[in-house]
Write a protein that binds this DNA or RNA. Structure first.
Lengths: 273, 273
DNA sequence: GTTGACTCTGACACGGTGTCAGCGTCGACC
DNA sequence: GGTCGACGCTGACACCGTGTCAGAGTCAAC
């Protein structure tokens, strides 16, 4: 009979954990002195301890380990548990690999520039959103060409919505497409709406697809948005993504008079390189 | 001013976490209604929220993120934090990769054999240990050759220790070396001792080096140990290690009369392939 | 019998996040 | 101005594996 300390050092486990394994019924000692409460283990229990350690080291939870060791899972369930665990590990490896390259990108940044960006990029899963929209065509994807085309669309859109008795249920946003004839850019001005997509005569209702997007918050007027777009472009390059179309612009805060106070989320759709 | 719910959905964060970020001072709301306690955020705070998310996604703790965003770390400290994080991630990637291949090995096993081993192998860092030892030479590393050479060494060893007034302070163990002349195997019988290595005339005191070893618990007499050694060999093959010498045998439980009850830990030294 | 090493229980901590209960507040509609 | 539903508040508990601590009890060796 071994005391808990001896058993712990033989098994290279902490005494604390042996007590824990006892308390959850995973590895009860072979005997417990009813008077003192002292736990006593046998050398033969090292076998079970080893099995516990081996299974735990796969990343299974102690509850799972207990179920397996107590034959409470059949082969099918066991295979299911292992496959699930394999999938979890694969996911985590991918995530950690991405994290590692992000950390390395930051380190490169502070080595070369002596500081870190104060504007950060976040990868988001942007859900699909239902919007009412008006569109027009601009000569190019350039602030100077787009502003004059896009800006007047909103008053008109809101006017038509009000006339139709529809209340906007989300923020205003803009997105862009290549024109069908390849000449210029289609500029869409939209605003989120809730509920049914009852198309009204002169307002198009569309559902923007969910996208994976690199996003950043742009502060100030939209004619300086290219600075934020460059931040996004650089991030994408450093993290091995590819752009997948034009950026959506989500107007979180908008003052017609004081554009400096404007806050816009730029969402640049991306896909894996 | 945005309510916490609006701010949360804009930032794609849960309301719960925004409250948490407030409570740890990471992202206090721009205003709090003193009457109702309602938190109100400004759109401009999305910038800070984005920075929080970006840094948190590197795997930094929220306390670290707060320190960074509040400019409480200088560039040197920041670099240190990122390097530490990089090292942690590298370590974790290695560990998870190993875990993944272990899980896959188990899956292969249940696919081909319809069950899992009931004898598990555990990789251990075995610390160095100070032992008193006697040795002899056997014709080969084979149970039939070793047993008769090894067994008599122990009574003699204990006799000499007692004569020298030394009390063994650890378990009995055996280990093996290639003989210098290449003929046969040097068989060492040892027992752990505590304290000083005062060498006694007729007992050698040596310090066995720390090793990384694949270990398993062998039950029963040592002439069936080759079964357990095969388990170890197979594990090593499946996990891409190489053996690094003969296995140590650590006699956890030993009955001269009833060898069936014997419990031995086999420690096979390994190194990376 | 003394003493020092060991063991016992029960508790708290870590960290990021979900969830719940019980209650207060806001705003829209009637 | 009342009602109601959606939303917000606080505080608590839970997860999971492990370390650590306090205060008390036990064992074994001298």
């Amino acid at each position: 009979m071994l005391t808990i300390g001896d058993f712990a050092s033989l098994g290279r486990v902490s005494v604390r954990m042996l007590r824990h394994y006892d308390s959850i019924g995973l590895l009860p000692p072979a005997a417990v002195d009813p008077h003192s409460g002292y736990r006593y283990y046998t050398a033969a229990q090292l076998g079970r301890l080893n099995r516990v350690i081996a299974l735990k080291d796969l990343g299974l939870t102690l509850v799972q380990v207990r179920a397996i060791l107590d034959d409470a899972v059949d082969l099918v369930e066991l295979r299911g548990m292992l496959r699930l665990r394999r999938a979890q590990l694969a996911t985590q490896l991918a995530a950690d690999t991405a994290r590692l390259s992000s950390v390395e990108a930051r380190l490169r940044m502070i080595e070369t520039e002596g500081r870190m960006t104060s504007q950060d990029v976040v990868l988001k899963q942007v859900p699909s959103i239902r919007v009412a929209e008006l569109s027009a065509v601009a000569r190019s994807y350039d602030a100077a060409d787009i502003g004059p085309v896009l800006t007047p669309l909103y008053p008109e859109l809101f006017r038509r919505l009000e006339a139709a008795g529809i209340t906007p249920g989300g923020p205003a946003l803009a997105w862009y497409d290549q024109a069908a004839d390849g000449e210029g850019v289609v500029v869409h001005a939209g605003v989120g709406i809730e509920g049914d997509p009852e198309t009204v005569r002169d307002i198009a209702m569309v559902e923007l697809p969910a996208i994976t997007a690199a996003t950043t918050i742009h502060h100030g007027p939209m004619d300086t948005a290219d600075r934020s777009l460059q931040v996004l472009a650089r991030w994408i390059e450093e993290h091995d993504w590819r752009t997948d179309g034009y950026a959506r612009e989500l107007y979180v805060e908008y003052w017609p008079e004081e554009a400096d106070k404007g806050v816009t989320e730029l969402q640049l759709p991306v896909r894996r390189a």
